[in-house]
Design a protein around this nucleic acid. Structure first.
Lengths: 237, 237
DNA sequence: TCAGGCTAAATTGTATACGATAATCTGCAC
DNA sequence: GTGCAGATTATCGTATACAATTTAGCCTGA
């Protein structure tokens, strides 16, 4: 019961060594949409794929389920999450709720070099948008999410940063499921507008732009309930 | 790769059967401050305590580490989290960031019966405050957190609700570590003021009161860095 | 042909086993 | 008595084993 003097526990890795890698690999696959919602992730398969035992595979899947990227159903197994329209709405409601606040915090602490970094990100994002091919598309998806994540990082609040991690990842799933326009997940120019507003220190405008941006992404979704169309309706066209 | 028709996955339990109970039991113990920050939670001990194998004990501890209630250090074991002053600040910054938004959402959807429920909670809280004894004290701690959690539940956003769960639990740890006034963790009357403001539909005032309330809790903390006082200073009085 | 139930295969839930790492203790040299 | 090296113990990391549950297939009988 001694205090163990765990004072300087500033930023350690959260957990296991092995499971971490697997979790990250699967998460990337989900976020970049190489794994479709609903795909079954059996423990044995995951284990074989990464040459580890089911123990580690299971740990990784558990971890992903805490982030909401995977649903594990008792005695049935783990599946890439298949967010319902209601869940999708809640994810974006959460983003509208927190992102303005994060933006304000970030703007208050941002340094010139960090602004530079943000701009570099935008450049990269634009470049990828020009290219074609799946690889570029995936990189673009990641980059557009990274913009929001970078803002959270700049805000300096590790807790909000982790939360945004989760929200951005889950957003990617939602877009994969309900997105309509084949085009990018995130209006690229809108990111630039936000940075510009930050640069001229117009916080209210920046928040407004951010809210618009989120609304814009959400507007591209078709959130009508598709309740297991697998019935006859699917063939009665 | 079939869609598996996982449509109505509205609100299932996230994971295992056994580990869940253990996790909840430990979490309650932490939130009610029966377990002090820094306490070691060895996998074997936890397993023996609940009469399960290390496998389940480990899973429970991992889960708690995702919520930030437990730190698991590689090859060393799991400890009840010992939040640094910086972490404490971030936890409350996060609460200031999200709770007004949650409050607004909640106020927009609240029903008369839910208002009634909130008032009942306040009554209960007040009653506990009058009693004495550890049991009452612990129940009071839980109740005062439940106020914030109930608001999140009323907001109807499951994601924000889970996030608040985490924040409230971690707040309890922070208060256990840095709280000064022996008295309750939450100004009880302030909860009542918030409800009153909601009732007369004065949202701006309600948010203002909520922010004050959070600031009030935070003001009771002594967040000075106590860096492993274990040195001579501890004995040079 | 189709419904129903039984059996077998696959998959998850949990426990145990073994190797690896870190903490602790012991004894020897100084 | 102090300091360090080696051995010992405790604990974690990962794999494997076995039990329980679900799923799919198959056969049978109307």
């Amino acid at each position: 019961m001694k205090p163990t003097a765990t004072a300087l526990q500033t930023a350690e890795e959260p957990a296991d060594t092995g499971a971490q890698q697997i979790r990250d690999a699967i998460r990337d696959a989900i976020v970049e949409r190489r794994l479709s919602p609903g795909t079954k992730l059996s423990e044995s398969d995951v284990g074989n794929l990464f040459n580890v035992s089911r123990t580690l595979a299971r740990a990784a899947l558990q971890a992903l389920s805490y982030e909401g990227l995977v649903n594990v159903e008792k005695n049935r197994g783990a599946f890439v999450a298949y967010p319902s329209p209601e869940e999708a709405r809640q994810i974006f409601a959460a983003r509208r709720l927190v992102e303005p606040g994060i933006l304000r915090e970030a703007a208050a602490r941002i340094t010139p070099s960090q602004i530079q970094h943000l701009k570099q990100l935008l450049l990269e994002e634009g470049r990828l948008m020009g290219e074609r091919g799946q690889t570029a598309r995936r990189a673009e998806i990641k980059a557009s999410g990274d913009f929001h994540l970078t803002l959270a990082a700049i805000s300096g609040n590790a807790i909000m940063q982790r939360f945004m991690d989760e929200l951005v990842a889950r957003s990617s799933l939602v877009i994969a499921l309900y997105g309509q326009s084949t085009i990018s997940s995130c209006g690229h120019s809108e990111h630039g507008d936000v940075v510009a507003a930050i640069e001229r220190n117009d916080l209210d405008e920046a928040c407004q732009l951010m809210l618009h941006h989120i609304a814009h992404i959400e507007a591209d979704l078709d959130l009508r309930e598709r309740k297991s169309v697998g019935l006859k309706e699917a063939f009665e066209l």
